[in-house]
């Protein structure tokens, strides 16, 4: 009898340790705590160029992540990139006239979307669209523009 009791205790210990490890992976190693578990709402923004942006790229305000990019598609009529973002419900007071830009973290880092809040009284809600957008800066284009203008001047 005591034998099967020890067995049960050991198996219980094993299962709890396994569950603890899974919890560590969920909350300490991954970002389930900060994002993905709570409720959120989605907004859209169209960019003429969204190169380098990926699903799961961060959406930030003032450098703080408030959401993630969940989808990037091309609008078949305007040929603009329509980016769908999922924003944490805690940040539900973003004015409609905010503008969204695609920025780069560091010189070679990842692309992310930065939102600069506007001043309008109306707020963004589920399904709304940010109209003021600034596309990604493509390094090659920038360099060629620079060289082109240089050569024109010279």
């Amino acid at each position: 009898m005591s034998n099967s009791r020890t067995l049960e205790i050991l198996v219980g210990l094993f299962v709890s340790l396994g569950a603890l490890a899974l919890l560590i992976l969920a909350f300490n190693v991954s970002n389930m705590q900060s994002f993905g578990s709570g409720s959120h709402y989605t907004i859209n923004a169209s960019f003429s160029n969204a190169s380098g942006l990926k699903t799961r790229s961060a959406v930030t305000i003032a450098g703080v992540t408030i959401g993630r990019v969940v989808d990037i598609v091309v609008d078949p009529e305007s040929f603009e990139a329509v980016v769908t973002m999922s924003i944490d419900k805690r940040f539900d007071e973003i004015p409609v006239d905010s503008d969204a830009g695609i920025y780069t973290a560091g010189l070679l880092g990842e692309k992310y979307i930065g939102i600069s809040p506007g001043g309008a009284p109306d707020l963004l809600e589920e399904g709304s669209e940010i109209r003021l957008t600034q596309s990604s800066i493509v390094l090659e284009k920038l360099i060629s523009q620079f060289l082109f203008s240089q050569s024109k001047e010279g």
Partner: peptide, 18 residues
Amino acid sequence: WSQMQAKVDYHQDVLNGV
């Protein structure tokens, strides 16, 4: 820890591993 938490996704990485 913070870089880890920012880049490891619960669904894509942890759940797929499970």
